[in-house]
């Protein structure tokens, strides 16, 4: 495993820690899209089915279990925790996320490397992960106040994907890795969706201002 991959995974983990910090200590999920969080649960459930079929490493298995457990836990808090659920910005979380699931199913059925259950579900999970941030970005744009933890959470999620691109470049050049079009293009699309957010996040950080996205 190269440094970019490790940093990417750690950034992903850190984003979850930041979100859990907000939920468990501030007892708030204001500004967090439940729809995006539910999409992540679906992403991890469909991608990590190979937990039952193939073993890679202790690291790999542990991380998969952490991502599954925390994503389900976050959705549970947002839906059922008696304090946290009252802070959910429900009226602003309006993105039609079923449409993203449908789109990803159709795309996975049309474009995949092999036509078997695990492979098609894995491909579906990549397509869905690429667009899963959209409800969250739309919600941020509607929020008048984006608190620091929410901004940092989304930034870390985007940084994780950008680091994965560097990881793929490294593997391609240094490890003689083959072309992997499906994860690469999905990952590029996913990272590109953050471009606008990155711009305003870095700008607010440089000017020491509160993060605000233009409507």
């Amino acid at each position: 495993m190269n440094l970019f991959r490790l940093l990417g995974d750690m950034t992903h983990l850190l984003s979850i820690v930041v979100l859990l910090l907000k939920i468990r200590t501030v007892k708030s999920c204001a500004g967090i899209s439940l729809k995006t969080q539910e999409l992540y649960v679906i992403v991890f459930l469909t991608r990590y089915l190979d937990l039952f079929t193939k073993y890679y490493s202790v690291y790999n298995t542990a991380m998969k279990l952490v991502f599954l457990g925390t994503s389900i836990g976050i959705v549970w808090y947002m839906r059922y925790h008696k304090v946290v659920k009252q802070t959910y910005s429900k009226d602003e979380d309006t993105f039609k996320h079923y449409f993203l699931i449908l789109l990803s199913i159709i795309l996975a059925l049309l474009i995949h490397r092999a036509f078997d259950v695990i492979e098609v579900l894995w491909t579906f999970s990549l397509y869905l992960e690429a667009v899963a941030i959209l409800p969250q970005l739309v919600l941020l744009q509607k929020s008048r106040n984006i608190d620091t933890l929410t901004g940092d959470y989304v930034f870390l999620l985007g940084a994780y994907r950008a680091l994965y691109i560097l990881n793929w470049v490294y593997r391609f050049l240094m490890e003689n890795h083959k072309f992997r079009w499906i994860p690469w293009i999905s990952g590029l699309v996913q990272t590109a969706l953050y471009a606008d957010f990155f711009y305003y996040y870095i700008k607010s950080w440089k000017n020491r201002e509160k993060l605000k996205l233009p409507a």
Partner: peptide
């Protein structure tokens, strides 16, 4: 291993 498996990432 080089090449081969796509699924070793998270």
């Amino acid at each position: 291993a080089a090449g081969g498996d796509d699924h070793d990432e998270l």
